[in-house]
Amino acid sequence: MTRSHRTLQLRAEPTDEGHIRLLSPEVGGFTGALPEGATLSPGMIAGSLQILGRSVDLVVPAGAGGAVVGAAPRARVAPVGFGDELYRLDPEGAPAAAALTASGGPELEGDAMAVTASQSGRVWHSPSPGEPAFAKAGDVLEDGSPICLIEVMKTFSTVPYRAEGGLPARARVVRWLAADGDDVEPGGGILVVEPA
C-alpha cells in the first residue's frame, strides 16, 4: 500500500426537503467532523477518514454548500461505511461571510484553521531524516517560520508560515494534517493551527 496522502470528495445527494446530504465516499473511521451550524462550501475539507492507518481528507464537492443542520457522528473517530450520511446541509442557511479561510481551504472546529499547500508535492516534517520536526503541537508560528519541506520532482524547498488568507499573525500548532511523507495537492491541508 502506498503512503500517499489522498483527498476524497464527499458524495452529495439532494433530499426532498431541499437539503443536501454529504455521504461518506469510503469505509473508514470518520474524524475531524465539523459541528452543527458550521458552513461548508465546495473545496473545503470537512474532516477525514482513517483507512487502514492512513488519513484521507474529505473534500466538499462542487455544487454542495450550506450550513450543517444534521449533526455528524459524534464519536471522536466514528466508524462509517460507504454512503453513510456524514452531514446534512441547508443551502439557505449559509451566512454570507462565514468562510473561515479566504482560500476556501480546509475548515476546522472552533477557532482552528488549516495551513494549506500552495503546490502539489510531498511533505516532509523535518529538514532531514532523523532530525526534529520543524514544528510540533504547541509550537507558536510567526510569519516566515519554517513549517516543513515540500518535495516537488526531487527538489526540496522550505515552506514558511504566512500570516495571510485569514491566518493569524501568531499561530499555535494544533496537529499535522499531512503526515511525514504524505503527498498533498494544491489547497490540501498541511497543519491545523489556532490563534496564539
Binding site: M1, E26, V27, G28, I51, L52, P79, G81, F82, G83, D84
Partner: peptide, 21 residues
Amino acid sequence: VCVGGPSPKESYLRPEAIVQA
C-alpha cells in the same frame, strides 16, 4: 457495513475497504 457501489469491483472485490470494515 456498506463497502461500495453495486458492481463487484466497486464493493465485494475491494480488499482494502473490506479489511477496514
